[in-house]
Amino acid sequence: MFDGEERERVRERLLVLAAADPAVVGAAVTGSEALGAADRWSDLDLAFGVDGERGPVLERWTRTLYEDFSARHHWDLPSGPALYRVFLLPGWLEVDIAFTPAGEFGPLGPAWRTVFGPTVPRPHGDPPSPSHVVGLAWHHALHARISIERQRHWQAEYWISAVRDQVIALACLRLGHPSAYAKAAHLLPEEVTAPLHATLVRSLDDQELRRALDAALTALAHELERTDHAPAARLRPMLAELADG
């Protein structure tokens, strides 16, 4: 796999190319590197401010990544005014480049270091509300139970794991950590994480799926108590119904 030196070489080459591209009027390093928190395994995150029509710029840069950096694949992730084109390079180096109209090029949070070009103030995105995460959790729990009853065992495993993901997100929100992609799960206390071991599905037989779902429902109920007693009181009997039915 790639190492930190290779990531730095690729970053510097891309920034030199960006500075020479008349359509790229701004560039920034984003993600963990902008915060000084990159480690051996971090990917490469850049943002470009694009002047004019974005389509030709995307096409040109995609060709460059394939021809000059031997990219193996790419895919797109739209986010507000930006389009993130995500490239896979040899050695499993992931390169994420956000192509943003110049008039909206600017930081959405602290993980931003401007390299060149003007930036504009942009509203920072808010984390999801606990109520939203709670809603996802009970939705996923319901569909886990329904999948078990339908004998759709792989789907049941998917939804049970999804319940666990929302328990982690809810705990992260409560403790002031980032809640997306379990990025702060390693910061959670053992009182939260220890019961989650029992939520791991060990096989796809009916009894095991029901056991793992019960464990996920218990962990969710406990986290609800820590987060907000009002919805906890309303949802606890509903969660028990899913477990006992």
Rank of each mutant, 00 (worst) to 15 (best):
D39K: 05
S42Y: 10
S203Y: 03
A184V: 15
L108I: 05
P22W: 14
T199M: 05
I97T: 09
R7C: 04
G91E: 07
L44T: 00
Q155K: 03
G176K: 14
R234C: 08
L14S: 11
L235Q: 04
R13K: 07
A111N: 13
A98Y: 04
P121Y: 00
A198N: 00
H197Q: 12
F99Q: 02
D228T: 10
L93E: 04
W112S: 07
L170I: 10
A243G: 13
L200E: 09
Q155A: 14
E8T: 09
F48W: 13
K183Q: 01
S70L: 15
G26R: 15
Q151R: 15
W138H: 12
A219G: 12
A141Q: 09
G109D: 12
A180R: 07
H197M: 01
L196D: 04
V120G: 05
A233I: 02
I168R: 08
A194M: 11
F2N: 02
L65M: 15
D3R: 02
A194W: 05
H139Q: 14
L14H: 14
A144C: 14
E53G: 08
V29N: 14
A156D: 07
P56A: 02
D68Y: 04
V86L: 12
H73C: 10
Y181V: 03
L142E: 05
D21M: 08
P189H: 05
A71F: 07
F48K: 14
H177D: 03
A171R: 11
S147L: 13
L204A: 13
A162D: 09
L44V: 00
A230E: 09
A212L: 09
H132P: 00
L209Q: 09
R72D: 07
L187D: 00
H222P: 00
L217W: 00
G106K: 06
Q166W: 10
G36L: 14
H153W: 15
E33P: 11
P110T: 10
E8M: 01
R210C: 05
L77G: 02
L235A: 01
G91M: 10
L187K: 13
F105S: 09
G117A: 05
V115Q: 08
A232C: 11
A38H: 03
H73G: 06
I97D: 10
A230L: 12
F105V: 09
Y181Q: 05
S32R: 11
A243V: 06
P107M: 02
T114H: 06
R174W: 11
P123V: 07
V24E: 01
F69T: 05
D206H: 07
W138D: 08
P118I: 02
A27Y: 15
L35C: 06
V24S: 01
R211D: 14
A198P: 01
E12Y: 04
G106W: 12
E94Q: 15
V120E: 04
E67H: 06
L173R: 14
T62N: 08
H132E: 09
W154P: 01
Q166T: 06
P118V: 04
L196S: 02
D214H: 12
L17P: 01
V50Q: 01
A162Y: 00
D39E: 03
S70Y: 15
G125Y: 08
V10P: 10
H143K: 03
R85P: 03
S147E: 03
I168K: 08
A240H: 14
